Amino acid sequence: MLSIAIDVVYFMLSLALLFAFIRLTRGPSLPDRVVALELIASVVFGYVGVHAIDTGVSSFLDVAIVIALTAFLAAIGFARFVERGAKE
């Protein structure tokens, strides 16, 4: 039963990654593209977390934490960029 649930989660994460990539390529503005990149980072974080649960290797959670922190720092950097009045 757990195997079916994990397969469903992988499928749903794949769909989310596909839709985020579409938004990244077709986004009309820079903020849309940055939000799509943040979503892609979150989906990758989810992939690594599910893979850690699936395999039972807890060291993958360290990788997931690094991905989440990197995405957070990128969001902060973009917010400062927009706050200073950068043009799109």
Results as ranks from 00 to 15, higher is better:
M1Y: 06
L2Y: 07
L2G: 12
S3R: 03
I4K: 08
A5Q: 13
A5L: 14
I6R: 05
D7A: 15
V8G: 03
V8K: 03
V8F: 05
Y10W: 10
Y10L: 07
F11W: 10
M12N: 11
M12D: 12
M12E: 12
M12S: 15
L13D: 07
L13C: 10
L13A: 09
S14Q: 00
S14T: 11
S14R: 00
S14G: 15
L15A: 09
L17C: 02
L17V: 04
L18H: 03
F19A: 06
F19C: 09
A20R: 03
A20K: 02
F21M: 15
F21T: 15
R23Y: 06
L24R: 07
T25E: 11
T25A: 15
R26Y: 05
R26K: 07
G27R: 11
G27W: 11
G27T: 10
G27L: 12
G27P: 01
S29A: 12
S29L: 09
S29R: 15
S29T: 15
S29C: 03
S29G: 02
L30A: 13
L30G: 02
D32I: 11
D32Y: 10
R33E: 02
V34R: 13
V35G: 04
A36G: 06
L37E: 02
L39I: 14
I40K: 01
A41Y: 05
V43K: 01
V43G: 06
V44H: 00
V44C: 09
V44G: 01
V44W: 04
F45A: 10
F45L: 13
F45E: 07
F45G: 12
G46K: 01
G46Q: 03
G46F: 02
Y47F: 15
V48H: 07
G49W: 01
G49P: 13
G49S: 10
V50S: 03
A52T: 08
A52I: 06
I53D: 01
D54L: 06
V57N: 14
S59K: 05
F60L: 13
L61K: 02
L61G: 09
D62V: 13
D62G: 08
D62Q: 12
D62K: 12
D62C: 00
A64W: 02
I65C: 05
V66F: 07
I67V: 14
I67M: 10
I67Q: 04
I67P: 01
A68H: 00
L69H: 02
A71V: 02
F72T: 15
L73G: 07
A74H: 02
I76Y: 07
F78S: 01
R80P: 00
R80A: 08
R80G: 06
F81I: 07
V82F: 11
E83A: 14
E83N: 11
E83F: 08
G85V: 09
G85W: 10
A86T: 08
A86P: 00
K87S: 09
K87T: 06
